[in-house]
Design a binder for these strands. Structure first.
Lengths: 167, 167
DNA sequence: TTGGAATGTCAACAACACTGACATAAACTG
DNA sequence: CAGTTTATGTCAGTGTTGTTGACATTCCAA
């Protein structure tokens, strides 16, 4: 951590961390870290002509089996056309199954097949391995701070979706 | 690999924060937070038919005026053809100028024009405002942890690029 | 000086986001 | 029951951003 407010008199952490320079560093850290965050799954997905969109769908279907298309839509924050293209290929390839709702037959409930779960595990393992290494490097207190800042960076609706997933 | 260590007794933070569930929460936090992170600039860029790639180029040219295409390439981690398309439009629109290198005439050194700097400021202001709010919410210790984890999440070459920018 | 390496440009293509329009079926409302 | 809303899926078109391939220019070293 270089300068901060060097030479201007140190007023304690409560102010120091809000300089534009500090903010810019945070921005660049997010940019690079997100590349690292997606690098491993991206490599795996590229080999099977899937993309990040497929990964996201698979992740959240695994997370909430039986979720509806609409629900998934609001979590992913994409258009239904975009999601539909992805789901169509996943269903066609036998990774996801779509069941007509029993209560409401308009709804489609989404589940991973065994094959889908296998891919999910492969992708998750790669991503978790990196996350675990980063957590281990950084230590528990840093991890707590990491999560706190990330949550503060979300929009209200994302924060709601994020919280909901932890029920 | 679902649960991790759930229900096996609490052994203190030193172990607890590495459960699969904790890692998954971190993964999802990154996903949502990155959406928030890019949301404000994306909104501005959409109005002028630019995208995130333009933003990134502008950001790093502003950060290191006179940088070469090759240098920018290694920071952004895309192909030169991809970057070139973006640079072409930015140069065509008068936001960036490209000067042939004096020592090595193969190189092109990139600079923002006044107009380019104006857009950079607009985009940065939006992004910094969100960052500042998040930092303020989370507090200084959290910010320190945030940066530590992000850096640990990068690949070695990204970490090098990130460190270089802070010289 | 000649051949290879480095740097950058142009063209074509694929992935994935978007909008808009429309179809279908089921649920809800009066 | 008729009309409206909701949930989903599809088709067509467009834009950004990534890719590979081919090529021009410049530098440098044998």
């Amino acid at each position: 951590m270089p300068e901060g407010r060097t030479g201007q008199g140190y007023s304690g952490e409560s102010l120091l961390f809000l300089t534009d320079e500090q903010l810019r560093q945070g921005i660049e850290a997010m940019f690079f870290a997100y590349r690292g965050f997606t690098a491993d799954p991206d490599r795996i997905l590229a080999e099977m002509s899937y993309g990040r969109a497929h990964h996201r769908a698979i992740h959240f279907i695994n997370r909430s089996p039986g979720t509806t298309v609409n629900n998934l839509l609001s979590i992913l924050g994409v258009t239904k056309q975009s999601l539909n293209r992805v789901l169509r290929t996943l269903i066609g390839d036998g990774l996801v199954i779509s069941k007509v709702g029993e209560l409401d037959k308009r709804e489609r409930h989404l589940y991973l097949t065994d094959q889908g779960q296998a891919l999910e595990a492969t992708l998750s393992d790669a991503q978790r391995a990196r996350m675990r290494a980063a957590y281990k490097d950084a230590g528990p207190e840093a991890v707590q701070g990491f999560k706190t800042v990330l949550e503060a960076m979300m929009d209200a609706d994302m924060r709601r979706a994020y919280a909901k997933l932890r029920d």
